[in-house]
């Protein structure tokens, strides 16, 4: 299963990078989202996969009993999801403003500060 997940992560990075290499800046936004999916799954997979058993402690017990998912990657990914959302929201508005100012979504036409 790890191999499958690794290939999935690789595909997310590949598609994300491909979209970032497009000249249309709108596609760059889509690439950004794909890339963050890839990164989240990378952290998740790298820590080791195990089905079931979320890291929740049953009432009445003081700690986890039996095998369970590592809580740390979960905490890291939660943070990563929120931050990448913040970046995406800002990037979306920036692209929209840039398009309004320059009138094109070709990155190569956006490389000067003067209009």
């Amino acid at each position: 299963m790890h191999l499958l997940m690794a290939i999935t992560v690789g595909m997310m990075y590949a598609t994300g990078l491909y979209m970032m290499l497009r000249r249309s800046i709108v596609k760059l936004l889509i690439g950004l989202v794909l890339l963050s999916h890839g990164s989240n799954l990378l952290i998740f997979t790298a820590a080791g996969l195990s089905e079931g058993n979320p890291p929740l402690i049953r009432p009445g017990e003081d700690g986890m009993v039996g095998p369970h998912t590592d809580p740390l990657p979960g905490a890291l990914i939660l943070t990563a999801i929120v931050i990448s959302f913040a970046i995406l929201a800002f990037a979306c508005v920036l692209v929209k403003r840039g398009y309004e100012e320059v009138g094109t979504d070709d990155q190569n036409a956006m490389n000067t500060t003067d209009q």
Binding site: H2, L3, M5, A6, I7, V9, G10, M11, M12, Y13, A14, T15, L17, Y18, L21, G38, L42, T45, A46
Partner: peptide, 14 residues
Amino acid sequence: VSLAFGAVMAGMVM
């Protein structure tokens, strides 16, 4: 280039 990058990243995960 993208697929090569993906393959390298998959290898890193492994």
